[in-house]
């Protein structure tokens, strides 16, 4: 690992695919402990780092040895921001399911699934793109231009 600030872009893509599958299972079964586990996975990626994130470890152990190495690198900051967005939705979803407000659980999980699938299939990072919108909504965005 020569460049700690960048990662093989296929790793996050793989993680998004796993996330998509996990979230579909959560929606189909309503088994919220799985969503809680996914929330922890998001939290590690967002607040600890991408390298120790479980799906990244899985990628390095199982997938990366079978692929050609690549020089392509992707910056970490957007990815971690996206993990934080995923964490927020998964947390709300977990609380919704666990407290019996199933609608909240369904909606929050569906939104997380929506973002994960866009990333997995199209390589499109919704959380990253939403950054401007999120800032616009937050009230402290009133600086003079």
């Amino acid at each position: 690992m020569s460049a700690p600030q960048a990662v093989d872009p296929r790793g996050p893509r793989f993680a998004a695919i796993v996330t998509t599958v996990v979230l579909v299972i959560v929606l189909a079964t309503g088994w919220w402990p799985l969503l809680a586990a996914q929330t922890v996975v998001f939290a590690i990626g967002a607040f600890v780092g991408l390298r120790p994130a479980p799906y990244s470890v899985l990628y390095r152990l199982l997938i990366a040895p079978r692929l050609q190495p690549t020089d392509e690198r992707e910056d970490v900051a957007p990815l971690r921001f996206a993990q934080a967005v995923g964490f927020a939705f998964a947390l709300v979803g977990t609380i919704g399911y666990a407290s019996g407000v199933i609608v909240v659980g369904l909606v929050a999980t569906a939104l997380a699934l929506f973002a994960a699938l866009l990333n997995a299939v199209f390589g499109f990072c919704l959380g990253c793109e939403m950054y401007l919108l999120l800032q616009r909504i937050s009230p402290r965005a009133g600086s003079t231009s």
Binding site: V24, A110, F114, L117, L118
Partner: peptide
């Protein structure tokens, strides 16, 4: 219900992605 929500979400994401 969850299965339907999952299906609708998947279809919506593909449409938006395209």
């Amino acid at each position: 219900t969850g299965l339907i929500v999952a299906g609708v979400t998947l279809v919506a994401a593909v449409i938006v992605g395209l």
